[in-house]
Design a protein around this nucleic acid. Structure first.
Length: 488
RNA sequence: GCUCCGAUAGUGUAGUCCGGCCAAGCAUACCGGCCUUUCAAGCCGGCGACCCGGGUCCAAAUCCCGGUCGGAGCACCA
């Protein structure tokens, strides 16, 4: 290797420029790791979710081990049945290797059993206070009247609770913590509550559902997780969950909390998207305006882009702004080598090239990759063509400009006239893309919800996937529908 | 208000735990040049940052204290 470097000094220089970010090592790794992704099934995944998926996957790949997908469906009022299959599909597309899927609603008896152990040990009690009373007492660091009841009484109440003996809001199972804890939300937190809704998966089987902090602690233990990576918004939850680990004498996994990312310029909130789909504002989960993985896939983003971006962002606890600029630049690097060039003319203006003999055009599908072939058109004499209205409006009379890969023309008072086909002053004159008169109508849907209508050159039918519309942008095209989805 | 986090160029980050190799690296954006029949890509060069104030130390982006700014959580969501 050293020899090679000295023989090719430019290689050594190159080496310096490809330095990539590497995620920090995890603490206390002994052999394999076991980690998890824990989304709630309220809808498909979006860009924000992709971070936790990629980060966890990266580490399981680095150290070997097991990655669980744990569907957290213990709140029957916030479940979308489609999410149970959409989430694994999103992950597969992202290239995240899930080894096992765990569904919490199928583990209810595990949670009940652990709760009973805590009740026996006097670490959990059943509270029958009014919600507001319970809250007020806690704020004053005072115990509620049910806190010191005997384990037997609590056990009986818990049995009644899980068999449907209480109605919603009248009872809860509470984990004893520390009533003097400075953070009121950490004081005696609720572990189970009654839900009367029908659960999409288990129907009316259960009446008492665990709160996230309880089921997460129990599952993290029984799945024998070594490391947990999640957003900073879980910092308080980590502290709440640690009480369970402490009471049970369980060994805690290592926790990492990455900072929150603000993702500008797109719609991510599942509740808003759902409402929009219901009332017809959005066409579905892959509506062009959304930030779901389904939408991004449809626009032509590559899964590798997500991985590279999130690995580069690391695991710091700083909050940050998602950079579309950088994200798109990563994606561009991946797609550009295969992106065929095409001419698309938005808002076309039809012009006749006066005074021309028969014209022919020939342009490569990719200037950097001649093997992708070329597109050629024979136009006859004095052909009609389309150019973008925007260009036409800014071209002055007598201005000589070039129709790319065709010929130079001059604007006359009434239209355009053939000038020449000199390549000499290409750097000085305006070069405009054009399409022949027999071009197809084509529509480009853009992420801001707007639509560009125009003409696309006939040979677009040979192209599928992401192409680069010259002087316009990258577009993922659907030749059948004659529609493209704007990428960047 | 309370609790807990954090602060490196326009943006995203490396370095911070174990102070010196950091007169701070990389990417992106921007500027200039080359190449090019795209306002794409590529290549070369450039601009640009350790929040502020004290302290410890031979030495601080790194440790300590105070301030400022930003963020998260705050109880029957996950």
């Amino acid at each position: 290797m050293e020899e090679a470097v000295s023989l090719l000094p430019e290689l050594a220089i190159k080496e310096k420029h490809v330095q990539e970010h590497r995620l920090p090592d995890l603490a206390d790794v002994t052999g394999e790791v076991r980690m998890r992704l824990a989304p709630s099934p309220s809808g498909p995944l979006h860009v924000g979710h992709s971070r936790m998926a990629i980060l966890n996957d990266e580490y399981v790949r680095r150290y070997g081990g097991k990655l669980y997908l744990r569907i957290e469906d213990t709140n029957p009022s916030n479940i979308d049945l489609d999410a149970y299959h959409l989430i694994p599909e999103d992950l597969e597309w992202l290239g995240v290797k899930v080894h096992e899927i765990v569904v919490q609603s199928k583990r209810m008896n595990i949670y009940y059993n652990e709760a009973k152990k805590l009740i026996e040990r006097g670490s959990m009690y059943i509270c029958e206070c009014q919600q507001s009373d319970f809250k007020n007492l806690k704020l004053q660091s005072k115990a509620c009247p049910h806190r010191e009841r005997s384990p037997e009484t609590n056990m009986a109440a818990f049995e009644k609770m899980i068999s449907g003996g209480y109605s919603k809001g009248t009872v809860s199972a509470v984990v004893k913590t520390d009533l003097n804890h400075p953070n009121p939300s950490i004081r005696d937190w609720i572990a189970f509550r009654v839900k009367e809704e029908t659960h999409p998966l288990t129907g009316k089987t259960y009446f008492a559902y665990p709160m996230m902090n309880f089921s997460v602690a129990v599952d993290d233990h029984y799945l024998d997780l070594t490391h947990v990576i999640r957003g900073k918004d879980h910092l308080n939850n980590t502290e709440k969950q640690s009480y369970i680990f402490h009471y049970m004498g369980w060994k805690k996994p290592h926790y990492y909390h990455y900072g929150l990312v603000h993702i500008p310029g797109t719609i991510l909130k599942t509740s808003i998207i759902k409402k929009g789909i219901r009332d017809g504002t959005y066409s579905g989960w892959s509506d062009i305006r959304l930030g779901t993985l389904l939408t991004m896939k449809r626009r032509g983003y590559r899964p590798e882009t997500f991985r590279k971006y999130w690995v580069g962002s690391g695991m710091r606890e700083i909050d940050s702004e998602f950079s579309w600029e950088i994200f798109n630049s990563i994606n561009r690097e991946i797609i550009d080598p295969d992106a065929r060039r095409l001419w698309f003319v938005p808002n076309p203006t039809r012009l006749k090239i006066q005074g021309s003999s028969e014209l022919k055009s020939s342009a490569p599908f990719h200037p950097g990759n001649p093997s992708l072939g070329e597109r050629t058109y024979s136009l006859g004499s004095e052909p009609e063509i389309f150019i973008p209205e925007k260009d036409w409006l800014s071209i002055r009379e007598n201005e000589r400009f070039r129709l790319k890969d065709l010929c130079n023309v001059i604007r006359t008072p009434t239209g355009i006239r053939y000038a020449d086909n000199s390549h000499e002053d290409l750097k000085k004159i305006r070069i405009v893309q054009w399409t022949p008169s027999d071009s197809s109508d084509f529509i480009v849907e853009k992420p801001d919800g707007s639509i560009d209508r125009g003409k696309i050159e006939p040979l677009f039918s040979k192209v599928k996937g992401v192409s680069q519309f010259e002087r316009y942008g990258y577009v993922n095209i659907d030749p059948e529908k004659r529609v493209g989805y704007y990428l960047h």
